[in-house]
């Protein structure tokens, strides 16, 4: 029988994979995709909690998270395009303007 802790374990591992992506990769697109992985890990945990505690609120929260994530991706990609137009790069190591 698959219980709550199995889903939560999958969610925790997926979250860690997303954090690895944000920390390690230099390509801004991959970093944005890793952020999506992190959000999805949170979504999975919330749907699992919602199912196992017989409460619809968790699923409503996931619904709103998906909406906000879509807006976040759109704004993030617009920022990336504006950045690329100005600097011709999508790598974090080339963006060192604010480095002391």
């Amino acid at each position: 029988m698959i219980g709550l802790e199995d889903y939560l374990t999958v969610s925790a591992i997926l979250f860690s994979i997303g954090v690895v992506g944000v920390v390690m990769r230099r390509n801004l697109f991959i970093i944005l995709m890793s952020l999506e992985l992190i959000l999805n890990a949170a979504n999975l945990a919330m749907v699992a909690f919602s199912r196992f505690s017989n409460n619809i609120d968790g699923q409503m929260m996931v619904f709103f998270i998906i909406t906000v994530a879509a807006a976040e991706v759109a704004v993030g990609l617009a920022l990336l395009v504006a950045l690329y137009r100005r600097r011709q790069t999508a790598y974090t190591e080339d963006l060192t303007n604010m480095k002391l």
């Binding site: 979504n43 999975l44 749907v47 919602s50 199912r51 699923q59 996931v62 759109a74």
Partner: peptide
């Protein structure tokens, strides 16, 4: 996984919004 958790609506939304819209935007 969402379908296995009986969250049918969210599974559909996940496919439509993420796989259908967000990734295409990427």
């Amino acid at each position: 996984l969402f379908v296995l958790l009986n969250a049918f609506f969210l599974a559909a939304v996940q496919v439509i919004v993420y796989a259908g819209a967000v990734i295409v935007l990427y």
